[in-house]
Each structure stands twice: as C-alpha cells, then as structure tokens.
C-alpha cells in the first residue's frame, strides 16, 4: 500500500451541496508525491468543485480533505505557498497587463524564478504588455500558466488548462509539464483532452455525478476494457465465436474483426495464430473507450434509479 505520508492530496468521502444540488457525493481522491494525476469527468461531474474545496475556496460539508497533510480550509494561505493553480476560466483584471498579473501572482505565491519566467513567456509566445481585456481566452490561460509554471512549487493544480490553447501551445504545455515532473513535483490535471491525459498522467481518477467511479494507472484501467482486433487469416476463420471474452465478431471471407476483453487477448491471438495470420492490427483500449464506458450508460443507470 502507498505510504499515506507521501500523499500530496488525500480526499475521503467528500460531500458538498449548493442549495439542494448535491455537487459532490462521497468523493475519494489521492495524489501521491511525484505523480501526474489525471482527473476526468464530464461537465458538471464536480471536478472544479473538488479543486475549489481542495484550495479552501469552498468549505466541505462532510469528509476529510488533506493537502500536504494539512487542512486546506484552515491553513489555506500557508499551504498555498507550495502550489500553483490555473483555473479553467482565467479572468484577468481589464486594466492590468499580462506581465503585471504574472508578477503579481508570482509575488503572492512567494516568488518567481526569473529565468524560467522569461523562458516561459518566450515559449508560449505571450505578449506581456497587453491589457487583460485585450487577451483572447487562450492568451489569458497562457498568462495563468506562465505565472504557475514560473513559481517554485511542489504541486500544480490545473483545471482544464489547455482548453483555449492551439495544438502548438498544447505541445509546449506538455513539454513544460514533463520538465516540471522531472523535478519530482506532482500535478493534478483535470482535463477533457484524453490524448493529453494519456500522454502525461501516471494515474487517473474518473468521476461522475460527484463521486469517483474508477481510479488507477492507465495499465490497471485497461484491464477493464477491450482491445479491438482486425486480422486476415489463411484458413477459413471458424471457432472464434466460441472463445471466452470475444465480442462483436464479424467475419468477411478471410477477414475477421472482433473485440476481446484485454485479459483474454493472449488466448484470442493464439487462436488466430492457429488459423495462419496474414495481417494483424490490434488497437489498445483508449481512454476514450474507458470514458465512454463510464459515461455512455448514463441514461439507463438513471432510469433504473427512478424505477427503484
């Protein structure tokens, strides 16, 4: 088991309601030191609310929330010295320039690395002399990202940080997170961009309607899903439909298409081998599929609840 002292973020049974809307309903989330943790969920699942409770901006109704082992509501300012946060919607002061905001946020966090600040401004191609109201959404996000990444902190909390960035800037962002991680720091990355999560994250948590539904490394989670296989074989493909774990089998002459539970992939490939493989494409499960599996059945699940 993981050493609890090493957990940068440890949330247990978190509840938070706004009026009669239950935003969080018993959420657990753990981020260990040195990991990049992906935080996935559809809109309104409670990702931003979780992050705001974690930052002491909102008060938890029930449950325990530990940030660096401390209480983020009581010791917010002290704990915030050790982290930097980029919200999903960056709102800047209309009369302050981007450069001023970077310095202001850096100063309030306890100082900026000057060299890194200059380097980041250049890499993100940010014009720091523009006033807040003149920036586009992507540029506002860059301002907050530069301020966060140039700070000397142990934890980055990022709430959909690339939603306004173009693909080139997304690549720059990915590099920056890699650099940050190399220094042994931790990241909580809430995102919708699955490719980004797959590329960056060591572990992911998937949440839905205020609770976590799945947590683990990507490898762990892949066991829960299916690999799609398409192959052309020498012999007439028979007997495949009898294999355990094979689904949605389609046979067109010598070509076969099917999906197989990842645990039974070996047996299925063995069976294909006996038929004489000519071509073989195997598509590993993507996070998209994981995602769809958890969110795709939203309607039926709720109908059942209503009936019950």
């Amino acid at each position: 088991m993981v050493d609890r002292m090493n957990d940068v973020i440890d949330i247990r049974g978190l509840h938070k309601a706004f009026g009669c809307t239950q935003a969080l309903d018993g959420l657990d989330l753990t981020v260990t030191a040195g990991e990049v943790h992906g935080f996935l969920g559809p809109n309104g699942a409670g990702k931003s609310t979780t992050i705001r409770v974690l930052l002491g901006l909102l008060r938890a109704d029930a449950g325990t929330v530990r940030l660096f082992g401390g209480d983020p509501w009581r010791d917010a300012a002290e704990l915030h010295r050790r982290l930097a946060y980029v919200p999903g919607d960056v709102n800047l002061w209309p009369t302050l320039t981007g450069g001023e905001v970077i310095d202001l946020l850096g100063r309030l966090r306890g100082g900026l690395d000057e060299r890194r600040r200059a380097d980041l401004v250049e890499r993100f191609e940010l014009d720091p002399t523009k006033k807040g109201r003149a920036y586009s959404k992507g540029n506002r996000q860059k301002v907050a990202l530069v301020a966060a990444l140039a700070s000397d902190v142990e934890l980055l909390v990022l709430d959909e940080p690339t939603s306004g960035l173009d693909p080139l800037m997304e690549a720059v962002f990915t590099e920056c997170i890699d650099d940050f991680k190399d220094e042994g720091s931790s990241v909580l990355l809430s995102s919708h961009i699955l490719a980004e999560v797959e590329r960056l994250c060591d572990r992911v948590s998937i949440i839905r309607t205020g609770r976590d539904v799945e947590t683990g490394t990507l490898a762990d989670l892949r066991h829960l899903t299916r690999t799609s296989v398409s192959a052309e074989v020498a012999a007439q493909p028979t007997g495949l439909d009898g294999l355990v774990g094979v689904h949605d089998l389609v046979v067109e002459g010598h070509r076969v298409f099917f999906e197989v539970d990842t645990d039974h992939l070996g047996a299925a490939i063995d069976a294909l081998g006996r038929l004489g493989i000519r071509t073989l494409t195997s598509q590993p499960p993507t996070l998209e599929e994981l995602f769809m599996r958890h969110y795709g059945d939203e309607l039926p699940a709720e109908t059942v609840e209503v009936d019950a």
Partner: peptide, 8 residues
C-alpha cells in the same frame, strides 16, 4: 479564485 489560491 486565482488570487486566493496563492499564499495571499
């Protein structure tokens, strides 16, 4: 939000 997520 951003301001109060700092040490301020």
């Amino acid at each position: 939000e951003t301001l109060l997520a700092t040490a301020h």
